[in-house]
Design a protein around this nucleic acid. Sequence first.
DNA 1: ACAGTTCGTTCCATTATGGAACTCAGTCTT
DNA 2: AAGACTGAGTTCCATAATGGAACGAACTGT
Lengths: 147, 147
Amino acid sequence: MRWNDLSEEACPVARGLSVIGDRWTMLVVRDCFLGYRRFEQIQERLGITRHVLADRLRKLEAAGVLRREPYQERPLRHEYRLTDRGKALYPVMVSLIDWANAHVPPPEASSVTLVSRETGAPIAPVLIDANTGETITHRTVNAKVAE
Amino acid sequence: MRWNDLSEEACPVARGLSVIGDRWTMLVVRDCFLGYRRFEQIQERLGITRHVLADRLRKLEAAGVLRREPYQERPLRHEYRLTDRGKALYPVMVSLIDWANAHVPPPEASSVTLVSRETGAPIAPVLIDANTGETITHRTVNAKVAE
DNA sequence: ACAGTTCGTTCCATTATGGAACTCAGTCTT
DNA sequence: AAGACTGAGTTCCATAATGGAACGAACTGT
């Protein structure tokens, strides 16, 4: 199978990855969540090749994750902002952060953690089922295939 | 920046992606969650080249996400199972599934959804803060950098 | 002896990525 | 008005990763 065929899969994991499963894409999305919107900024922060960044931004725009908006005329300049679809990726990013902080040790004593914007208290993300309030685990959930 | 330098980053998103941000890796993990444990099975299901699969399995084992266990002697054969670290990826996968089902349309009417193993009722995953019980959004959370 | 199984490895063509320089439209400096 | 500067890309080429197919090793079963 080719990577590009993934979007045709029935499995939502495969379809999701066809959009954000690319090497750099989630890092671009992260920077957008952090408020970086311009090509130069993102390119410098990521150390990614301009070539690749241009390609990823194009694809993210085509997927409806980012939108390209002019922030000045003369000379015309665009910035990239998360759409609602892009913002909906927040739980994916938070889950990833939580996993990495618990399971992929940082280089030194440095760390980045999630805290409440209001109180500054640390956040402990847990996935629950909104319908029942119960914690979601791989033991309590099944995948259901509809045709 | 090179892709392989990502694990040295302080940002947990980058460190997490250094393990699972690879093109096929999350699909291998998905298959393990679905109970497929053998090289042949996974290779056929994914349509990935054997070469790449062998490489990914090696890296996932090195990262402590999978462990290699003999399931028979003579001839010696191994299978791959999720470790606790690997199982801890479940919230990441569920968040991704939820996002893809809402934002990346499946090819036809086909769909795969999450249901309760006990009741069969559909699941609506939501991320909350275990400390406060409040829903986690990008407006209520900040990243805090400690040195 | 010979085909079948399972988990890989090897070889090579194609594709993607990294690095650096270049373009283009307009602005700012002197 | 000439020349430097800015931001967002594009172009070119060497290097790395991937896709496809065949091959190898260590057994089993007939």
